[in-house]
Design a protein around this nucleic acid. Structure first.
Lengths: 105, 105
DNA sequence: TTTCATCATCGTATATTTACGATTAACGAT
DNA sequence: ATCGTTAATCGTAAATATACGATGATGAAA
């Protein structure tokens, strides 16, 4: 694109779109589910369960971290990932709000 | 990317990611709101309310149509757009399901 | 039938995303 | 100190997304 026009929208719409972007790849949906299903949650565990290389999974984790849907805690050479309930709750609330605004039901 | 790996995920995760992708630009969030707020909903009306050229808005509408979050009805030279409540309801339901699976709250 | 209005599509430029191998960094264990 | 494990980052290639001007198609109105 020539130049992004994203900044010309409201902060609310930008945030919502940003959360949606983080959820816009099936690998990242899957990662969120894996993080909840499993107790231990190292990057390696996730790589095992996805048809993707370690570098690619690391990139997807980075995107989820960017919007704070997940967070990682360094434990020696390992990193223990988990979902961030606060952001998830806010996302759910804002999505509910959007859908109630937008749906005639 | 070399080759997309999207097909290797479940249909459910792919659908959810696809809906999220459609919502992943603030212009498209805004368009959904405009379509609900306004009674008449021509493409031109939307263009007026966005800081984007007509061709760009048309592209965003196409992306929303792709996942059937909206639909357009041709009325002479005009096209009357409206949100698709059925898809919105399904999206809300699936998102709720995802969040309940993924959030410890 | 010519003109106008409306909107999709084409062509194009640039930015971003997806994917991976290779490398690097950080730490624990030997 | 060296080695193995873990995961981030770099470099790169290819696919997609974003943005717009120009053009095309369609139908209403003159």
């Amino acid at each position: 694109m020539a130049v992004s026009k994203v900044a010309e929208f409201t902060q609310e719409d930008i945030w919502m779109a940003d959360i949606a972007k983080a959820l816009s790849h099936p690998a990242r949906i899957r990662i969120l589910k894996i993080l909840t299903e499993m107790n231990i949650c190292m990057c390696g565990d996730i790589v095992e369960q996805l048809p993707l290389a370690q570098a690619t999974v690391s990139q997807h984790l980075k995107e989820l971290k960017r919007v704070v849907l997940i967070q990682g805690e360094i434990e020696g050479p390992k990193v223990c990932y988990c979902v961030n309930d606060k952001t998830l709750q806010k996302a759910k609330k804002e999505l509910d709000k959007l859908f109630s605004q937008v749906c005639n039901c």
